[in-house]
């Protein structure tokens, strides 16, 4: 079976406020693959996800990022999202006054419009959101609340997962998806993630700990330090790191 590459990153260099954070990063993710990137705190893991998603404030100095063969670096953040890149954020921001449903409706319709699909009818939309919500333990009351305002850590992650299950992205990045979650919440999130594994959809899990990887088993594991991948392997690499820590990878220089 030939593999179709979805995301191709080649010799990427990027900086934030004149400081180079990503230094020669290479990674190819094919359709249906789940990759995990593990790295010590401060290695620039979040920078990587932000650069892929086009967050302002990051400057790519050289290298390329291609998604479905298209040059991502020229696209706005919203177009990257519409192309099918979803970033499940570590600290999703609060948007006061904007109800979850309102937000989701704007989001899904913007994506549909991009793909020349008609906007969802309100009834249809509400039904879908409620159904998906139910699976994640999100009740109607929570759907009426403003986006992330006063949400607990677990609620925020569940809302992120809900958005992902509605937008059905081709590629999802999980930035420290397990941070601040207890075991039960972690399982719910993991279930949401596993539910999206269909052999076609790809994922990139960025994490410090191996914890989440016990529930969502990756095809590949990469160790990321000092702005690039220092070692790649399969899921056993994660266990290794859990045992020995990152020290062996951060000493170089």
């Amino acid at each position: 079976m030939t593999k179709t590459p979805l995301l191709e990153i080649e010799d990427l260099h990027a900086k934030v406020a004149d400081k180079e954070i990503i230094k020669g990063f290479n990674l190819t993710i094919n359709e249906g693959e789940v990759h995990a990137i593990m790295g010590p705190n401060g290695a620039g893991k979040s920078t990587l996800s932000n650069v892929i998603c086009g967050k302002p404030g990051y400057e790519i100095t050289s290298g390329s990022i291609r998604f479905k063969g298209k040059d991502l670096t020229k696209m706005s953040a919203e177009d990257r999202a519409r192309e099918g890149i979803f970033l499940c954020m570590q600290y999703p921001v609060e948007i006061p006054g904007v109800a979850v449903t309102t937000f989701l409706k704007h989001s899904i319709n913007a994506v549909r419009k991009y793909h020349n699909l008609p906007e969802l009818d309100t009834m249809e939309f509400v039904k879908m959101v409620r159904e998906e919500g139910k699976k994640l333990g999100i009740d109607n009351e929570m759907l009426k609340r403003p986006v992330n305002v006063g949400f607990s850590g677990g609620e925020k992650k569940r809302l992120e997962t809900l958005q992902m299950s509605i937008l059905k992205p081709a590629f999802a990045i999980f930035d420290e998806a397990d941070s601040g979650l207890d075991v039960d919440a972690l399982k719910v999130v993991a279930e949401g993630m596993n539910g999206l594994r269909d052999g076609k959809r790809s994922m990139l899990i960025i994490t410090h700990y191996q914890r989440l990887l016990q529930y969502v088993v990756p095809d590949f594991v990469h160790v990321y330090a000092d702005g690039h991948i220092v070692k790649s392997g399969d899921k056993t690499l994660a266990a290794e790191i859990e045992k020995d820590g990152y020290a062996a990878y951060t000493r170089e220089k």
């Binding site: 706005s76 921001v93 937000f103 989001s107 899904i108």
Partner: peptide, 17 residues
């Protein structure tokens, strides 16, 4: 905030919207 804008954009919503 830039964070709010980016969050919306990451979900496919254009800047003006």
């Amino acid at each position: 905030s830039d964070e709010q804008l980016f969050y919306c954009e990451q979900r496919g919503i254009g800047e003006e919207e």
